[in-house]
């Protein structure tokens, strides 16, 4: 028996947890490879035109796993009131269920209705015939390990805020930021040009969530709250912000406006669709770095007369 895990969307929040739990239970998993053009095209061909690029990409990853016995597709709804996910996250299970022939392992995260993560894993156990006690042990051990690992990642990320280099906070959903085709070309370009990159998802979630209230008390998207919270927590130490979104993300379009209006830092919004040329991207990144360098007096570019 083999469980397919698409390396997209939820993977960037729960992938480590799933892999740890399944390993402890000796269950074979197959994770789809890093996004490549074949996977992206697979997704685009199967998607409808109104889906965001990230969801199209997810569908590509799901289709890639068609030889697996099960595919793991959770439904992440909410983390209590005012901490919603986006509608795509709600719909994914139904979309996938109607799209592929594989059996689906599904569980809900819906804290408003008391459906938490542990209950979700019991549901997985139920499908895979794993005893509750065994599942609980694997889950709790994994959670504990991950908590420590995450603390280290956050510490590393925050340490970069003291770097002498130009510092750019990358604000975006991890499934975009870390994706091989969506965010990686941007991160690579920044690294190649001597920029210290800081990631918005590697801040303490609770702290960032609270901090976001400084910008807006009405926002109810959990992931976006954490994104903009990271801006509040780091704004005194960073030189600029690059906001990566996938076309046409609804929550991001709202939050983008919010940040433009309320944050006084050099700011670049990059909206990624499935363009195959990176000329436009490089023009924007290069000129953004030029501005930051000029502002900080680190520039070789001056109007010499």
């Amino acid at each position: 028996m083999k469980i397919g895990i698409p390396r997209s969307l939820y993977f960037y929040y729960y992938g480590d947890l799933w892999l740890k739990v399944f390993k402890k239970l000796n269950i074979e998993v197959k994770v789809s490879p890093k996004t490549n053009k074949e996977i992206m095209d697979l997704g685009i061909n199967k998607s409808n035109d109104e889906m965001c690029l990230s969801l199209k990409n997810y569908i590509g990853h799901v289709c890639y796993l068609k030889d697996c016995d099960y595919i793991l597709v959770p439904r992440i709804d909410n983390f209590k009131t005012c901490n919603q996910t986006c509608t795509n996250f709600l719909a994914t299970y139904d979309i996938i269920n109607n799209l592929v022939d594989n059996k689906i392992i599904n569980y809900n995260i819906d804290l408003n209705k008391g459906e938490d993560e542990l209950k979700g894993f019991y549901k997985i156990g139920n499908i895979l015939k794993i005893k509750k006690k065994q599942m609980k042990k694997a889950y709790l051990e994994s959670i504990k390990e991950l908590k420590e690992e995450r603390l280290i990642s956050i510490k590393d990320n925050l340490k970069k805020l003291d770097s002498d280099k130009l510092k750019i906070l990358i604000v975006g959903h991890p499934y975009n930021t870390y994706d091989e085709l969506i965010g990686k070309p941007i991160i690579d370009y920044l690294n190649d040009n001597g920029i210290q990159v800081i990631y918005s998802n590697l801040f303490d979630s609770e702290e960032a969530n609270q901090a976001s209230r400084e910008l807006s008390k009405d926002l109810y998207f959990k992931y976006n709250k954490e994104n903009i919270g990271s801006i509040i927590l780091s704004q005194d130490k960073i030189d600029g912000i690059i906001f990566i979104s996938s076309f046409p993300c609804g929550p991001d379009s709202l939050v983008n406006e919010l940040v433009i209006r309320k944050i006084d830092l050099p700011y670049l919004n990059i909206i990624i669709d499935d363009q195959s040329s990176d000329t436009g991207l490089i023009t924007r990144l290069e000129s953004f770095i030029d501005i930051l360098e000029a502002k900080n007096g680190k520039s070789s570019i001056s109007p010499c007369r």
Partner: peptide, 14 residues
């Protein structure tokens, strides 16, 4: 070889 934003700004400033 430089992007047009920087080039335009430098040209205009002169």
């Amino acid at each position: 070889v430089k992007n047009e934003i920087t080039a335009h700004a430098i040209g205009t400033l002169s």
